[in-house]
Design a protein around this nucleic acid. Structure first.
Length: 283
DNA sequence: ATGGGGGCCTGCCGGC
DNA sequence: TGCCGGCAGGCCCCCA
């Protein structure tokens, strides 16, 4: 499910209930997700205090006062569910143990955070905070699309000489960290660039146009997530997914929404994944 | 070095 | 109603 905006929304939702709180207990209900959990994960988490909660690419990062950072990836189906004993709102959030509740954090403030992941493509690991950027999963990540290193100069050099379709390059986490299948489709549609277009064949001008579009598409999605979040007690306690409307993604055979285009959205396969685009206005 | 394809899992949906 | 194939928002790994 989650791409960068969803992960950002999850972090925003978790921060007020986890930050500066001690993890009284970590319940680990199975030995692994996609990979084995780190050795003694439950013990290493228990009794630590959450110092900072942040995001890099699609990874949720939870810095602990033990100088370790808990790295969480939601994979395709991972969700964070919040329930609050103080309000007795187990009727919201996560009333009782459900299928695929793999890890549960019992916080000092009586809030309970449950990591639920049906497909188990998610992952969790612990790494020493000072060496976090050297972690295997983080070390090769490209720049954050909302950060300053993602600029025209950078993208031009990243695309130059590449023969692969632009869709694949934008999905490559070493080039940009955090874009997934949905938002790449959306970005290319806004930029009127065909997903099949060879990266190296794009003009400087068109490459330059991609930068603000990436920022805009992601920021808008984050805003939508943030506003759907509000107070977790009002919501259903579920973090990691929110309803969002898309211009091309999932709109096969429907009319293109661009003014005066009149085209029809098509679905094709690229490297085994669905691409949605408008053959009329994306060239 | 790079690109393509397989694989990891479960759930859901549409068609028969 | 029930079964089956196809599909899913990610990412690593192996192979050519």
């Amino acid at each position: 499910m989650p791409e960068l905006p969803e992960v950002e929304t999850v972090c925003t939702g978790l921060e007020p209930v986890m930050k500066n709180q001690i993890i009284l207990k970590a319940e680990v209900n199975r030995p692994n997700l996609r990979w084995p959990f780190p050795p003694n994960m439950a013990q290493r988490l228990t009794g630590t205090c959450v110092v900072r909660l942040w995001r890099r690419s699609k990874y949720i990062l939870i810095d602990l006062d033990s100088d370790e950072t808990l790295i969480i990836h939601l994979g395709m189906s991972g969700r964070m569910l919040i329930s609050d004993v103080r309000v007795g709102n187990f009727q919201f959030g996560h009333p009782k143990k459900e299928k695929h509740d793999h890890v549960v954090f019992y916080m000092e403030n009586d809030v309970r955070i449950t990591f639920n992941d049906a497909r188990r493509f998610g992952m969790m690991d612990l790494a020493p905070t000072p060496r976090l950027s050297q972690h295997k999963l983080l070390v090769s990540l490209g720049p954050e699309p909302l950060g300053n290193f993602f600029n025209e100069t950078y993208l031009q050099s990243a695309l130059t000489g590449k023969n692969s379709p632009i869709k694949q390059v934008l999905l490559d986490q070493r080039v940009i960290a955090g874009l997934g299948n949905i938002y790449v489709c959306e970005v290319l549609h806004h930029a009127s660039i065909s997903p099949k277009r060879r990266s190296g064949s794009l003009s400087k001008k068109r490459i330059g146009r991609i930068i603000p579009i990436v920022r805009e598409v992601l920021s808008k999605a984050i805003l939508a997530g943030g506003s759907s979040l509000k107070d977790y007690r009002q919501a259903d306690g579920e973090l990691g997914y929110f309803q969002h409307s898309f211009c091309v993604y999932g709109r096969e055979s429907l009319p293109c929404l661009k003014d005066n285009c009149g085209g029809t959205i098509r679905r094709i396969q690229q490297s085994g994944r669905s691409t949605f685009y408008c053959p009329t206005c994306q060239t």
